[in-house]
Each structure stands twice: as structure tokens, then as C-alpha cells.
Design a protein around this nucleic acid. Structure first.
Length: 355
DNA sequence: AAGCCGGGGCG
DNA sequence: CGCCCAGGCTT
């Protein structure tokens, strides 16, 4: 039969003590700041990928005060390649807010933590349980999977009623003591044994008491999101080089795709239409390229659409007066692009172009 | 090629 | 309040 909340929690805790992960970088010296940064990174990326990012981030911004004092661009540069750049921006904004609201000390009040940008109920619970020993439930993807399987929760967790049931279970299973170890154990269980495909039920502490395992429904729980056909959108990016061989970068608007990041100038004009590209350059930058060379197109897939990227290369024989560093534009040598926060597809294009 | 993911923002 | 959005990685 399914375990009682107390049996469930003690099984998870016993398993965690013997088989959980105890040597992750943020578990050494688990301050609220370090746990916070790790949790934000882990929202979008798996542990093995996060570790080098976390180490680099902590080397550059060892304390909350360092993060709050840092330039946003420096923070985004450390986020480059992780994706979800809004999270890097929220991290920086929250650090500034903590300096203003809480004298630079990470708050330990749940409502205060949850009100910070980029921190919701689950992340607030994770920080305060792992770093401060408080009792709060968490509900990340790993925990959702474990609970849905053990207690046989049907339906897609994106549905309101399903999510509410999972939170109810998360709340009632969280033990009165050692909530942080329990939460870490739940995440470890979901990440190492109770994986999405091919769960290792033979080693699971809940074996025999898990609805999904007893009914052979591990593959069906939790139910996947109903899927929809993705539309394809097209855009054209311009690789414009000055006589020194530097490439022109443009800062994107703060919201939307690649918000606030440096990218290549974007136009709606098809790359094959070199006359219109030249007109567009004249209009936007005040120079008229002699030659527009179309390059191979690229594809990039987001969660909700495919992006077809057309690419055109333009080499200028003189420096255009209207394009100067600052004001959302900059000329960059290929070897300096590592210092900027560039979306991964753009970084790939620049690497290809510099070969 | 498709699925995944906690929280923000908007209507 | 409910729906849509974000991006790189794993499978």
C-alpha cells in the first residue's frame, strides 16, 4: 500500500543519508546566497552542466554584495550558454533589492524571499529549507515526478487541480525535522533513480509501496504535456564587418527573445534580396554596402516555435559615421565575444564566421 | 526531433 | 487568475 506521510519521509531520509548527493559545490558552505544561485541555475539545467557555471559564478561574485555591485553585462556573460537569460537578470535585480530592502543580508522570512524576482514558492522553500533549516515543501520537476508516481497522481502537472494535489502531498509529506535533507533527498531521488525514462525501481526505497511501480505505469506518470505543432518563423541577421575585421553587434530590446543580450543586427528583409538589404542599411546605419553576400541559413528551435535564421555578410571599406560604440551598438573583435552575454546560436554563428 | 522546466508577465 | 513565454540540454 502507499506509505503514510511519515513512512514516506523517513524512507526518503534514510535513503538520502546512505545514497544521496552530499558533495555538490553548493552543499559545501550552504549559505542562502550560494543555495539561491544554485537553485536558479538548476531550474533550467541539470547538475552536471550547472557545476562549472556555478564555480565560475562564485569565483567572480563570491558574495551577495559582489553580485549586487556587479554590472548586469558581467552577470549575463556568466549566464551565456545557460539560456533563460531573464533569470540572470532577475538574479541581479534581486541582489540589488536585497541590498536596498534588507541591508545586503539574504532574508529568512518566507514571504520576503518569495517576493524577490525570479523566486517563487518552490525556490523560496528550497533556499530556506536547505540553507536555513526551515520546514517548507518544494515542488520542482524531480519532486513532482516522485510524488506523482508513488501516490499515483494522474494528469498533467500543468493542470491546476493536478498541481494543487501535488502541492498538498508535498506539504503533508515534508517532515517536521530535517526538512532540508528530505528536500535534497527528494531531488536526488528524482534525479538519480526516479528518472523520467527507465527509473531504477530495484534500488528505490519506495519499491513495493509505489503506485506506478506496482501497476507498471512508470512510463505514464507523470502525464506529459499535451503537445502542439510548432510554427516556424524566419528572420534575417546581418554580419557586418568594419575595415579592422570587427563585427557589428546590436543590443536587443530588454524583453522578448534574447532580451537585453548582444546579437547581430536583425532585419525582416530576406537575405536573398540584396538591394533591399542595402536600402535597409542605408536607412538604419547611413551607409550603403557595395556587396551583400548571402550565407548558409541556420535553424534554432525554441519551446514554442522553430526559428529559421537567414544570414548575410557585409564587408565595409570605410567606417560609417553613424555607427559608434555605445547607444546599443558596438564593434567587437571575434576574440572578445566571450566577455559578452551572447545567445548560444549567435555565439555559434560568430565562431563560424571567424574561422 | 521532441520533451522538459519554475517563474514572469500579460490580458 | 489562467494562459503564454523562454532556450539549451537530454533522450
Amino acid at each position: 500500500m502507499t506509505p503514510s506521510p511519515e513512512e514516506f519521509a523517513s524512507s526518503v531520509l534514510d535513503w538520502f543519508d546512505q545514497h544521496g548527493r552530499h558533495d555538490l559545490p553548493w552543499q559545501r558552505d550552504p549559505t542562502p546566497y550560494r543555495v539561491w544561485v544554485s537553485e536558479i541555475m538548476l531550474q533550467q539545467t541539470q547538475v552536471s552542466v550547472v557545476i562549472p557555471y556555478f564555480e565560475r559564478f562564485m569565483a567572480s561574485f563570491p558574495t551577495l554584495a559582489d553580485l549586487a555591485a556587479a554590472e548586469l553585462d558581467a552577470v549575463l556573460a556568466h549566464w551565456s550558454g545557460l539560456g533563460y537569460y531573464a533569470r540572470g537578470r532577475n538574479l541581479h535585480r534581486a541582489a540589488v533589492l536585497i541590498r536596498e530592502r534588507h541591508g545586503g543580508v539574504f532574508p529568512e522570512d518566507f514571504a520576503a524571499v518569495e517576493s524577490l524576482p525570479g523566486i517563487g514558492r518552490s525556490t523560496a522553500g528550497a533556499i530556506l529549507s536547505l540553507a536555513c533549516g526551515q520546514r517548507h515543501p518544494i515542488l520542482d520537476g524531480n519532486v513532482k515526478r516522485v510524488l506523482a508516481r508513488v501516490f499515483g497522481v494522474d494528469g498533467w502537472p500543468g493542470q491546476r487541480a493536478v498541481l494543487a494535489e501535488l502541492w498538498r502531498l508535498a506539504e503533508c509529506c515534508t517532515p517536521q525535522t530535517r526538512a532540508g535533507s528530505y528536500n535534497q533527498g527528494m531531488m536526488d531521488l528524482g534525479a538519480t533513480l526516479c528518472t523520467r525514462t527507465r527509473p531504477d525501481c530495484a534500488r528505490c526505497p519506495l519499491a513495493g509501496r509505489c503506485v506506478a511501480q506496482r501497476q507498471g505505469r512508470q512510463r505514464e506518470l507523470p502525464a506529459p504535456r499535451p503537445r502542439q505543432e510548432l510554427p516556424t518563423r524566419a528572420t534575417t541577421l546581418l554580419a557586418i564587418f568594419n575595415p579592422a575585421g570587427e563585427i557589428l553587434l546590436e543590443r536587443r530590446p530588454p524583453s522578448g527573445i534574447w532580451g537585453g543580450l548582444w546579437s547581430l543586427p536583425e532585419t525582416g528583409v530576406p537575405a536573398s534580396d540584396s538591394a533591399s538589404i542595402a536600402d535597409w542599411c542605408q536607412d538604419r546605419f547611413g551607409f550603403r554596402p557595395e556587396r551583400v553576400e548571402r550565407l548558409a541559413e541556420r535553424r534554432h528551435t525554441f519551446s514554442h516555435y522553430h526559428l529559421r535564421i537567414e544570414l548575410a555578410r557585409i564587408a565595409l571599406s570605410a567606417y560609417p559615421a553613424r555607427v559608434q560604440d555605445g547607444l546599443g551598438y558596438r564593434w567587437s573583435a571575434p576574440q572578445t565575444i566571450d566577455d559578452l552575454g551572447l545567445p548560444a546560436p549567435i555565439a555559434r554563428i560568430l565562431v563560424d564566421l571567424s574561422l
